[in-house]
Design a protein around this nucleic acid. Structure first.
Lengths: 315, 315
DNA sequence: TAGTTTCATGTAACTAGTTACAGCGAGGAT
DNA sequence: ATCCTCGCTGTAACTAGTTACATGAAACTA
């Protein structure tokens, strides 16, 4: 039960703990001594304590990730990207999902700080900003995804461009009246809707009608209401794609004949279902976010990715 | 840059580090002293170092998770379940995805050990077993998912039952000749296929034809070959559902009229697409796995979940 | 042969905390 | 007035390592 320490290895090899430490790292040690130490470590099943190493180094090698929603495909690809870069630099990933509860976001960021993560990638609301900024001041690189915060690195999508892409595609498809299902009043959502509005007015199309939806259960009602006056439904968050699509098909509507449908974020089944989307390079965004943590640029980086339209005929 | 330590707080409050430590934990301290210490901690922006705490406690509060594939919906719900339980017991989650590379699995398990996780939930091949067993001997509860290993806790599906459920449903749908797309020769896959074989022979149906597929790219060929002699395609791993479905629809086949289709693991779009599945309670499995880590039962627990058939008419 | 350099290793102080033990002043009992 | 207990606090030793500095012996130079 009691774990093997460097002291046990030292005693077994007949050397001091300092020598063992040197062998384990890359210190200057005679080959014969090193061999004895390796043998002792092997024999005793020694596993170095990464926590102790970290406390001496001042921080852990772990990359912290605080995300809003584990079940959303966007965050999933984001994590894959982070994980890939983290693994390449031998950094474990410490993951916390907040399930969209603000009080948990702040607590999770604080927990990451207490675990002295080498850096933090997060998607969180303003509540957690002060903590994150304090971390950054203490030398922990913090990357905020899908939002920008003064003084912190950020990786985000050009949301206005996403909205304009949507408008352009809707116009190309000959849609005149657009109903929007949006997920929140967070900056991302607002900018997408603004971009969409702008794109429509540039084309002299009527302004869209927007309904804000809290969760999946409210989607059906929202769609029902939007359908009364519109010939295309746009969903500005990938999280609600399933629910919006279900609300349309439940009414026996076929895309694109009966109704136009366009949504955010590509997903595995989109091709099969023929759903047109405006996609974010979520995997790449995760990679860049993790790279910022690893590279620790001194000035706050503000990285903006461009969305792409994938037209599949649902609009 | 230099972080505030307990010593700084102690100096600022005019007490010893021992007293600060007592205030931060639940020690016996006069109220007036505690107030001074809290004020000093607040003023200096003190954030206790969780690593140091852990080294004294002998282990960290973190729960380790080594997962084979972050992009598979099964593992995703599993993680959600683990995360939920971990958050409830204030344990951060340390996540590592191995992307099905055996050498990474062993390395990740070792890394988790070195970080002195309080427990480990993992899906890994035999390569990592010896490490995991050693961890268990050192008092770290290890839960293996989707496999059983002597001496370790396990959480798995009754895979044979899943196969029999499939056979029963195929028989009910009047399918006579079954083609199987399986993903590997891992125990889960083998047991599912065995259960399916058994179920078919109990009903005096001909034995199925199985094709083993390494990755998505090989699926189309496999399906093409199976279609020559069979009237139903069964996929024994949720990971390949998209690819198999695509291979069928690409040939213009309609389900259930032209071909029967039945696969493993439920997913968000299955309802929309009308795909029948045999589902695992993956979220619940994650919860139970994490609970085993938290509760640390002395005897190895072997928890088996039952699959359920969700018939949606694709078969 | 003596002096210097070099390499390998041990000693001890350090990281950021926790905790066993001892001490001390106040208050109550004798 | 003395003794004892009690609540609070500090000292110092501990966790599992790392590392600056000192030491000592062998090897090389003069």
């Amino acid at each position: 039960m009691k774990r093997v320490t460097i002291g046990d290895v030292a005693a077994h090899a007949g050397v001091s703990t300092a020598t063992v430490s040197r062998v384990l790292n890359d210190g200057l040690v005679a080959e014969s001594t090193a061999a004895k130490v390796w043998a002792a470590a092997e024999f005793l099943g020694y596993s170095p304590n990464a926590l102790t190493r970290s406390i001496f180094a001042g921080r852990s090698s772990t990359i912290g990730v605080v995300i809003r929603d584990l079940s959303s495909p966007f965050y999933l690809d984001l994590i894959r990207g982070i994980d890939e870069v983290a693994a390449a630099s031998d950094s474990p990933v410490m993951l916390a999902s907040t399930y969209r509860r603000a009080e948990r976001e702040a607590a999770q960021v604080r927990a990451m700080d207490q675990h002295r993560v080498r850096g933090l990638v997060m998607t969180a609301d303003e509540t957690a900003d002060s903590h994150a900024r304090q971390m950054a001041e203490n030398g922990t690189p913090c990357v905020i995804v899908a939002r920008t915060v003064p003084g912190l690195h950020s990786v985000s999508l050009d949301d206005a461009a996403a909205g304009r892409l949507m408008a352009a595609h809707l116009a190309d498809c000959g849609r005149a009246r657009v109903g929007i299902v949006s997920g929140s009043h967070r900056p991302t959502q607002v900018k997408r809707v603004d971009g969409l509005r702008q794109g429509l007015s540039e084309r002299d199309l009527p302004q869209p009608e927007e309904v804000l939806v809290g969760n999946e259960n409210e989607v059906d009602g929202a769609v029902g209401s939007l359908l009364q006056r519109n010939d295309a439904i746009v969903c500005t968050t990938g999280r609600l794609t399933v629910a919006v699509h279900a609300a349309l098909t439940a009414r026996g509507l076929r895309m694109p004949d009966d109704i136009g449908f366009l949504t955010m974020d590509d997903f595995a089944w989109a091709g099969t279902l023929g759903i047109s989307v405006v996609a974010q390079p979520s995997y790449e965004m995760g990679r860049r976010a993790a790279e910022l943590v690893v590279e620790e640029p001194s000035a706050p980086a503000r990285i903006v990715f461009q969305p792409t339209l994938i037209a599949r005929g649902s609009c």
